[in-house]
Design a protein around this nucleic acid. Structure first.
Length: 315
DNA sequence: TATTGAAGGACTA
DNA sequence: ATCATTAGTCCTTCAATA
């Protein structure tokens, strides 16, 4: 069996560890340049604040003190994440850290998993102060489904399991297709056009059609929803690339400014590489115009160079 | 004909 | 009218190369 531990509103929960007075209040955390909302507390979601909304659109609510906005403190969130992951790691055979706020756990084939999950959840809350939701099922994708129920129905108290065929059928019949892991905007539209609105509807399609419509990844999702593992469980996921990028505050065509940015970002990437003892095989640089102004002339360019001898120094 | 590489895109948190 | 993240993975397509 597989469990998924998913931190609730992670960035906001981290801020609440430092500022307990934010508990119960509508809080959002902003992106790097305070450009848009990247995390929302339950209360902020209830106010109808969408994910990714630009700062200026919530500015009025902030002035009226209906909503609290915080700048993001990524180094701290990273630290909290590492403490949570380490705490969990000590209690399971296998752990795959999937993102800053989620990890998959490999559990024995059979057993009574819910008491374990409830205890783990309580321990993370008590020792670190971050509330988590835990989903248990036979595949990663079904564990995601279970987490969806753990988060959306208070009755589950943060822990939901799909352990029987009846539970699986019921969970999938009620799950909107767009909530399925791996179904994004594009695939949602394609499925809707084929009359699919729930996860159960997807399984009712012939696999051939799913293969044609959604290709390799879609077929994997299909099998995973059936309860057959189609995604690898990877304890170590070697990093493939490091990145550094920013949206510039003002548009510029000034080559000197762009060069300065690129030098800065390159230095940042090199620091990351050194920190993790990695070597670069390829260097790519991209530049993009503001794609949110579609009427302006657009230009998107990526250049890539293979590096024969991995450079030891950014200069 | 099979493999490789670049470009582009979908998706995720 | 404003603003509009950042970092990452994997897959597909198509053309060039062996």
């Amino acid at each position: 069996m597989i469990a998924l531990v998913d931190c609730n509103n992670f960035f906001v929960s981290c801020e609440r560890v430092l500022h307990p007075e934010l508990e119960g209040k509508p809080v959002v955390v902003l992106s790097n340049n305070d450009g848009c909302v990247v995390a929302r507390s339950q209360e902020a979601k209830a106010l109808g604040i969408p994910m990714g909304i630009p700062y200026f659109k919530v500015a009025r609510k902030l002035r009226e003190e209906v909503l609290i906005a915080l700048s993001n403190n990524h180094a701290f969130y990273h630290d909290v994440s590492q403490r949570i992951m380490a705490l969990i790691h000590d209690q399971v055979e296998q752990q795959e850290v999937y993102s800053i706020d989620e990890c998959f756990l490999r559990l024995p084939r059979s057993g009574d998993f819910k008491p374990f999950a409830r205890t783990l959840r309580a321990e993370i809350l008590q020792k670190i102060g971050v509330p988590v939701s835990i989903g248990i099922a036979s595949t990663k994708t079904l564990a995601k489904v279970a987490v969806y129920y753990a988060k959306h129905y208070a009755g589950y108290q943060g822990v939901a399991a799909i352990e029987t065929e009846e539970q699986r059928a019921k969970a999938l019949a009620k799950l909107p297709i767009e909530e399925v892991w791996g179904i994004g905007r594009r695939r949602w539209a394609q499925l809707k056009a084929n009359g699919v609105t729930t996860a159960a509807d997807l399984l009712a399609l012939p696999i051939g059609l799913v293969q044609r419509l959604l290709s390799v990844t879609g077929s994997r999702t299909y099998r995973e929803l059936e309860g057959v593992e189609a995604l690898p469980f990877a304890e170590v996921t070697p990093r493939q690339s490091v990145f550094s990028s920013r949206s510039l505050e003002v548009e510029t065509a000034d080559m000197a400014k762009l060069e300065a940015c690129i030098t800065l970002f390159l230095g940042h990437c090199c620091r990351k590489l050194r920190h993790e003892n990695l070597y670069a095989q390829e260097l790519s640089i991209y530049l993009s115009t503001n794609r949110f102004h579609p009427k302006d002339p657009q230009h998107h360019e990526l250049i890539a160079r293979h590096l024969n001898t991995p450079p030891a120094d950014p200069r």
